[in-house]
Design a binder for these strands. Structure first.
Length: 565
RNA sequence: GGGCCUGUAGCUCAGUUGGUUAGAGCAGAGCGCUCAUAACGCUUUUGUCGCAGGUUCAAGUCCUGCCGGGCCUACCA
């Protein structure tokens, strides 16, 4: 039995995430976690809300609430939605926890001890009306290059020229609109990650099997221009992990957020009344974590922080913390020809998705179309046809036709009589082959390929049944038909087991209908198909997957289109 | 501007270290079945592999250029 530590990128606290965010982190991580648990491995799947930073403060202000209260509420909202999608976190923590505060300050102290922190004096724009320093993106003005009026302080969207806030003509705060801005001197701690460049470079080079998306982004940052740059890890904010001996400063979210992977594991230990050793055996290689395999899941926007700054933090501490072993990164999911947009209400967000269809529908479509090699696109037509064909027709209808036929001819009981013959042997051989392929793809986190293989496993049942034709055989040889149905009922149970990582709710419903709790991952298909014995009772399941009608599709298409550009 | 990814049947995508007639699912067509969610099975049509050159006995696969789509470019997170 192996020990697998899994983390998915922390969703930012500000608002509800859309399906693209889900498919790039929590969902594939959950698939992997469920699969690994199914295989009998010890899994720790950790995630948390990322709660610090300027956007959280502003959102709280807008909501008219203290930021701590706002974050607590939104954390619960996100936790509920994740639960609704069946995301099987072992713990869903908060980056604002006491644990994370302690770890963040600890790492900063260790980095300072090891001469990897330096104090840098910097000039930044301060807004008197807002009473805060403004990140570059929160300042807009007229582009000095092209004259575009709404240019941001970091870049002009019109001419794509990179800017500095002081370049802007007539700059104003996007928070208040105030033009009462001034440049102030402020001191910040910088992480001297440039000193670790060669170490990081060698480390990345050693990861031959990582997705190219992961390594190419890391390489770019390591080698672009003068190479990896030092990075400010503090901000002038109230809300965050306080920087010791620097009043008014907190650590930058991107410094404390990854540390929360560790923090949340410690939160888990505390919440379960366990001691420090419980989390340390996942994170400290000197305390039992040396045999842990650590896999991270994230969208491509998160890659630099997970390949460079977080490893720099870990390595720079010179303490025996567990480093990531594999980073699975994803491209983006687009929505019907464009991007998901919160501000325009375009696309389907997690809460809306659950309000119209069961989570398994979304899980299946998103995972079977995961943006692994390039950006993927959600369209309602594709969604409808995939769901109706794969889930309703191929899988759901298989369970339906088998159980209903059995009920009418033999009753709701696994029928006795007959022997397995050549057709059954051929099916078992096919399924063993496909099971091996499925396991291989799941082990490798090849999400789309896993889904395709699972679907082929489902389809094999229909092929077999059609060929065996128990409805015909029954007329002359009821025992032979009984053997076919006995195997087919067992096939339903096998499908429930193998499908559990993708569609856990339907899997549970099918197992309940088959009146069994035996969900053990099969080593061998033949054995697995003898699990439900003759005489075992079952019930005919309700419609496992109702089809999506054209009317529904059109209604949703309209509803989620958002306002036009 | 720079870097990276990507362009394969109407649609969504596979195509391993270059090797014979380029594959799958969906959609379309035909046949079969009637247990089932008008479901299932079998057969089958469709491709100048973005364009133009080059290397090679051999290129979807390697090289160069061009065209299209996307992402990143370090103070949003």
């Amino acid at each position: 039995m192996a020990r697998i530590l899994i983390t998915s990128a922390l969703p930012y606290i500000n608002g509800i995430k859309h399906l693209g965010n889900l498919v790039g982190s929590q969902l594939p991580a959950d698939l992997f976690a469920r699969y690994m648990r199914g295989r009998g491995h010890e899994v720790m799947y950790i995630c948390a809300t990322d709660e610090h930073g300027t956007p959280a403060e502003l959102a709280a202000t807008k909501a008219g609430k203290p930021v701590a209260e706002y974050c607590a509420e939104l954390h619960d909202v996100q936790a509920d939605i994740a639960k609704g999608f069946g995301i099987s976190f072992d713990y869903f923590g908060r980056s604002s926890s006491d644990e994370n505060r302690a770890f963040t300050q600890h790492f900063a102290a260790k980095l300072a001890e090891n001469d990897l922190i330096e104090v840098v004096s910097d000039k930044q724009v301060y807004s008197n009306a807002d009473g805060r320093f403004l990140p570059d993106r929160y300042i807009e003005g007229t582009c000095p290059n092209c004259g575009h009026v709404g240019a941001r302080g970091d870049q002009c969207d019109e001419c794509t020229k990179q800017l500095s806030p002081t370049d802007l003509i007539d700059p104003y705060s996007t928070i208040s609109g105030s033009k009462d801005l001034e440049v102030r001197e402020t001191k910040h701690l910088f992480l001297r990650q440039s000193k670790l460049r060669d170490t990081l470079d060698k480390w990345i080079d050693s990861k031959k099997d990582w997705p190219i998306l992961t390594t190419s982004i890391a390489k770019k940052w390591l080698h672009d221009g003068d190479g990896l740059r030092d990075r400010g890890i503090t901000r002038d904010l109230d809300w965050g992990v306080p920087v010791p001996d620097m009043p008014g400063k907190v650590f930058y979210v991107w410094f404390d957020a990854p540390i929360e992977y560790i923090g949340a594991t410690a939160e888990w230990a505390k919440a379960n009344g366990l001691g420090d050793d419980a989390w340390e055996r996942w994170w400290r290689t000197d305390k039992g974590a040396d045999d842990v395999r650590y896999v991270q899941f994230m969208g491509k926007d998160n890659v630099p922080f997970h390949t460079l700054s977080f490893p720099a933090t870990i390595m720079g501490s010179k303490e025996p913390w567990k480093l990531v072993d594999y980073i699975k990164s994803f491209n983006y999911l687009n929505y019907d020809g464009g991007q998901f947009s919160t501000s325009k209400g375009r696309g389907v967000f997690m809460d809306q998705a659950l309000s119209i269809l069961p989570s398994d529908y979304w899980r299946w479509w998103l995972l079977s179309h995961a943006p692994e090699n390039s950006d993927a696109e959600f369209t309602w037509e594709n969604f409808q046809s995939s769901i109706n064909k794969d889930l309703a027709d191929v899988l759901g209808n298989f369970a339906s036709r088998v159980t209903k036929f059995c009920r009418s001819k033999f009753g709701e009981v696994v029928p006795a009589g007959g022997e397995y013959g050549d057709d059954e042997k051929a099916l078992i051989a096919t399924l063993n082959q496909r099971l091996t392929a499925y396991n291989t793809h799941m082990d490798a986190m090849e999400v789309r390929k896993s889904a395709a293989e699972l679907r082929a496993i489902w389809a094999a049942g229909n092929e077999y049944l059609q060929n065996a034709a128990p409805w015909t055989v029954f007329k002359t040889d009821p025992d032979a038909a009984a053997a076919v149905i006995r195997l087919s009922l067992n096939l339903i149970r096998l499908y429930a087991v193998l499908s559990k990582p993708f569609i856990p709710d339907a899997s549970a419903a099918l197992l309940t209908a088959m009146n069994t709790r035996d969900a053990s991952w099969p080593d061998d298909v033949e054995t697995a198909l003898n699990t439900l014995p003759e005489g075992h009772t079952f019930t005919v399941p309700e419609v496992t997957f109702a089809k999506i009608t054209d009317a529904q599709r059109e209604e949703w298409q309209e509803k989620f289109a958002g306002v036009r550009d």
